[in-house]
Design a protein around this nucleic acid. Sequence first.
DNA 1: TAGATTGTTAATCGATTAACAATC
DNA 2: TAGATTGTTAATCGATTAACAATC
Lengths: 217, 217
Amino acid sequence: MKKEKISNNVIRRLPRYLRKLDELIDAGVNRISSTELGEQLGFTPSQIRQDFNCFGEFGQQGYGYNVPLLREQIAGILGMDRGYKAVLIGVGHIGRALIDNFCFREWGINLIHAFDVDPDLIGKEFSGVPVSSVDEIQAFLKKNKVDIVVLAVPRDAALPTANMLIDNGVQAIWNFTNVELVGPDSPVIVENVHFSDSLLALSYFVSDGYDSKKLKK
Amino acid sequence: MKKEKISNNVIRRLPRYLRKLDELIDAGVNRISSTELGEQLGFTPSQIRQDFNCFGEFGQQGYGYNVPLLREQIAGILGMDRGYKAVLIGVGHIGRALIDNFCFREWGINLIHAFDVDPDLIGKEFSGVPVSSVDEIQAFLKKNKVDIVVLAVPRDAALPTANMLIDNGVQAIWNFTNVELVGPDSPVIVENVHFSDSLLALSYFVSDGYDSKKLKK
DNA sequence: TAGATTGTTAATCGATTAACAATC
DNA sequence: TAGATTGTTAATCGATTAACAATC
């Protein structure tokens, strides 16, 4: 069973498909063609069929795709059915936003514990997630299978914390610090949520809009 | 002055360059070649030169690039020197994280006001940013030139709020709700920060790692 | 001048789109 | 069976990489 290399572009589109399919399910849509799906997402039908065919044959000729079925396939590809366990380090504003407002469960992830340095937070529990001292992380990692560490510590703590985690065998970090945690060829999986990158891209597009007006594009 | 279309890939790399250049400046590095920069970022030297040459000639043959100068060029391209004004709608956990911990100023953006529905928050001020009632948004937008609206409201409020903003001439939205605000061909600039998309991509890569192990890649 | 490194053109590679046979 | 729509191959397009002349 040869495993073809899936391009990053395809992987980044999968969550978009998932969200759209959830939306269609909510709207009671049971069947959809690549053409219709493409119109709703702004993709070409070809691209959609190519994307899905990276992973198997999920449709049916002459019919299209069964929405709930396709949704389950994509959820599976994304690992949502594997019961991955996550812990959060850093219970500041972002950490609290994630614990209280971000529904990990909805995306198949189990947020089982949080850690912070603040004595006022240690021992507390938010939305069912207990907070312990960061001093206990290493012991915790030894005792529990943790698949993903959510890193939401202040800037200064980012690098030392990340290195400690990597030393303790953590293989995947969801990084909310605006710090580049690892070099280009580290084996650790780091997914960055760089707010500033996103804002600057937006700022660029706003500038571009102004330019275009000036140039009467 | 012909304006070539800049590809999205290039634009998304610009903030990475900026962060790396800031880092180099902090480290006192004044000069860098595309080869060295490429090694640090995991890009090829060719790509770096191509990227920069989309916007002009920022280097010098035989020498390389002047780090602070290059940094200013890229900052300019990203619109960081234009003094864009932003307002925040929704002062929940994410909103507070942005107000208190995210340094808009550092990226050239002026966060001038926030809005919420909660009477306990209205009239308060966080990190120098005053909070008003969402009822006052329309009047505020009429009186002030607002370039970017940061949208951090709950799921249910996302779409109606976005539509209200668009009706009032807002042209750029930084979207922290996990909701698709506009269709594929809306003229409004929307930059999404979809936490779930990011987490699911990470989840995919973790799954992929497990698969690879099983398959003894 | 010689060495270094850019700017830029040409070659390659990969991703997207188009086309169409397969088939439900 | 006829119509529809997929799965998949071929064609196109765009992005990345390589190469090298220009030049500091």
